[in-house]
């Protein structure tokens, strides 16, 4: 019998739901509350829950450190790249209207916000995981007296 069996079973059930909710918050952020920052933290929380229950090493196999390094930089580059793209299309920095100048329902704005929020999601998720990995790797497995 492995220790904390109930925790493991419950966590396995919850983690996909948490991740799904994170994506809902991300892509529904234009219509309801939420956005890249919140979704990023929720996605990171899903991985952190996994790490808390199954150990940091198992979490590092699921989400390797190289993903974190790449994702963190990719998010900032995507955000900044969106601004640079608006330059090349003849607009000001982060003026999303140039993506679809003739749209009657501001489709350019929607595309711009989508790209920018995706960048925020990548950076926030990976930065939170970086902080957790950095500190979590130093901590021994939770001993029973700490619970």
């Amino acid at each position: 019998m492995s220790p904390h069996l109930i925790l493991k079973v419950v966590a396995k059930m919850l983690i996909p739901l948490i991740a799904l909710f994170g994506f809902y918050v991300q892509f529904h952020g234009d219509f309801g509350p939420g956005g890249g920052f919140q979704a990023g933290v929720i996605l990171a929380a899903a991985v952190i829950l996994y790490a808390l229950i199954f150990g940091v090493d198992a979490a590092k196999k699921a989400v390797p450190e190289s993903w974190i390094r790449i994702g963190m930089s990719f998010g900032v580059l995507l955000y900044g790249g969106t601004g640079v793209a608006t330059w090349f299309l003849g607009g000001n920095f982060l003026d999303y209207t140039v993506f679809a100048p003739h749209s009657t329902h501001a489709a350019g704005q929607h595309w711009g916000i989508f790209a920018v929020e995706l960048g925020v999601l990548c950076t926030v998720t990976c930065a939170m995981l970086a902080i957790f990995y950095a500190f979590g790797s130093r901590i021994p497995e939770l001993s029973d007296e700490d619970w």
Partner: peptide
């Protein structure tokens, strides 16, 4: 044309600030 004003302000009107935050 977005129902959530917070997202519009955060990502579009104040996109510069949010870039800084990121």
């Amino acid at each position: 044309f977005l129902p959530n004003v917070v997202t519009a302000v955060l990502a579009s009107y104040r996109g510069f600030d949010t870039f800084g935050e990121t």
